[in-house]
Design a binder for these strands. Structure first.
Lengths: 223, 223, 223, 223
DNA sequence: AATGAATGAGCCTTCATTCAT
DNA sequence: AATGAATGAAGGCTCATTCAT
């Protein structure tokens, strides 16, 4: 009697995506060959063209999958009527930080490199589209805060977003580089910087920057 | 009377460097082949090995050359005894912004991509070294400001530097992306964003962020 | 009924090996390019990397394949209990001569050049290992002959092996060079030297040299 | 007052030759680039083409220079009327051994590789010509020995020369490889083989082989 | 549905030589 | 006489993709 294979064929595809994610994160898009992906995943090279059409298409699919969660999270924050604008900003900062710092920010770095490169236009556009969509949610929060006279009105929104995304990107990019400085209080950073501490620090830092930038009465919060 | 040779033999080398700069900026390091560089410069491929030894060495020479100016400028600011700490910060922000935004920030983006990639270790290390050296100057300014009771004392220096470099990087990376938002005052950005306006805005923005973060009495400055 | 595939997929690989053998023999390892091999074999250059990994690996595979037969033959001689030591030496000389003179000794010359060059260490070591392994068999024969009081006991084994291998190598290397001499009996070598005659002569010569060197009673054999 | 350079211009050429000799010996002809030679000699690359015309011509000049001494030595031996034929053979063996084993036999190996390769025809022919010329002297000694009834008459001269040259070539080629065998007397080769010992051994070995091959009464000599 | 084999274009680097001075 | 600069060809290898089965 013939055995029937129950294998879910989408498994292989998913596994290929996960493997690709890992390798792209480590080596970048260019330096990751389809052969590397296939070998690491224990499949045939041709599978990548077969499943995704091309290396680029694989990457695009990877992106869409991985960025969906942030999108939903932000929407939930914006639409929550029980939160005041500043609390929404705080949650937004927490959400962004958590997502970007995930596994060393490798996926985020990968995305930012592609946008910076603007060579694979399809990919760049896709990424830009998704970033923009998310920032629209932040925009809504801020407009709400101004209306409610909680935030100041002279806000350079594009620049503020550069500070938000830029600070996070720089934190994951420069890794522990900047932490090599002894801090201004003269204390050396003796203990190895761990990812949790970084997460806490960047969140606190961004909230302080945002509070002092946005709030009409920042003195109410002890940042 | 001896004839004096006017021909500067370093011309070709310099031209090769400039050509490489342009192509690296456009396509990134990996996607720029030595053949492309040589062809665009109207020279033989072998000249790149001849002059620089390798594609990587060329890149390193390019980096060193292009980053020397910033280094000198910062040193001058720090050592200037006629300036108070906050003025130094302002000048430092102006200096960084000008350098990074130069020709669309292409070189800076290139550098950040390489650091982010951490694949060509020689290059990554070289870039980190040069960034760190420059930030040391900023560090001195801030320590001085604290001592003189102009700056607050609870400063997370590594994070603040992430905001400085990160904001600038993001501004040149996302290009005009973020400006596609209508601003929070409801006015559309109708006119095309030109590089000068961006420069002014990012400088003003960073000064505002830094003033409110660093100064004990930010209300004295109308940011 | 299932169809049986007759196509041996190793055909192409084998053909590539044979083509490489021929070209290496003619031009040497360095002067034979992978492109030459591929073109002559009517295949794509990439196939060499595909099948063998690299040009060197191809060569190593070639070596191992071609030297296996001699190894087996020698083992058979040594272990044959019906043969007296001197008969084993005779068979050994016949075997070595036949193998080395095969197709003009091209493979043997190739091997000796590589050992002499000692540049590609992997290859040199591989060749040395295989030569040493085979000579161990000869060593056993000689030790047996001494024990049985057929061979003299003051034998410089390493030197004797140099004479064995060296004479054969020189014969194939100098090709017909040495035969340009009129022989000592005054007779000119008028007829073209053919490979069979050379084979006979070198075997006879080596047996004579070995008999007079090894045997306690060489006068029993009319060499 | 202008200084006058006294430099003998042939010095540079000679130095270039010596440098080339060293590098060719170490790496072989192909793997030694003209740049390497020029750099090691502290001169310009173009000098090689300038002085010698090409890399090959340089090699030819090198060969001729280095092989002249052996030629003279052999002629002296043949023409010496105070020596009996066997003494001449002994001297000839000593002379050949000394020349070939000089500095690890590197030049000799180089020559044999080129002959074996037969790719650079000019060079191969040149080497063959010089070898043949020298062997003619040996031929004369042997003919003399036969006439004087000291040597047997059934001598395969070409083969005997293969044994002479081949044994020496193999000795320098296989380096210490063959010495890794413990000798047939069961004694291990514990002490490192030094070049002087090898020289003595190969001379003794060749004399023993030649005595037993050539002499009508070998028992008179205790080889 | 899935794959091993095969492709052709491209990569960076090195080569021996020649050119202009 | 001597050289630094420049050349064009060729080197081995890797790539993403497609083909035949």
């Amino acid at each position: 009697m013939k055995e029937v294979k129950i294998i879910d064929h989408s498994d292989k595809k998913a596994f290929l995506l996960e493997t690709a994610h890992q390798l792209f994160s480590e080596n970048g898009f260019d330096a990751t060959s389809v052969r590397m992906i296939a070998e690491k995943a224990g499949m045939n090279v041709a599978m990548i063209s077969y499943y995704f059409g091309s290396k680029e298409k694989l990457f695009e699919e990877l992106l869409v999958g991985k960025t969906n969660y942030m999108r939903e999270q932000l929407t939930a924050i914006v639409e929550n009527k029980d939160l005041d604008p500043w609390s929404k900003i705080e949650l937004m900062i927490d959400g962004y930080s958590d997502r970007i710092l995930t596994s060393g920010g490798s996926l985020h770095k990968l995305m930012m490199r592609e946008v910076s490169l603007k060579q694979r236009t399809e990919i760049s556009n896709l990424i830009e589209k998704r970033i923009m969509f998310n920032l629209k949610a932040v925009h809504e929060i801020i407009v709400e805060g101004i209306k409610k006279k909680v935030f100041v009105h002279n806000i350079d929104f594009p620049m503020l977003m550069s500070t938000l995304i830029g600070t996070l990107t720089q934190t994951v990019t420069s890794d522990s580089m900047f932490f090599r400085f002894e801090n201004v209080d003269g204390k050396k950073h003796t203990k190895k910087i761990d990812v949790n501490e970084v997460s806490k620090r960047v969140k606190k830092h961004l909230k302080r920057v945002f509070a002092r930038y946005l709030l009409i009465h920042p003195e109410k919060y002890n940042y």
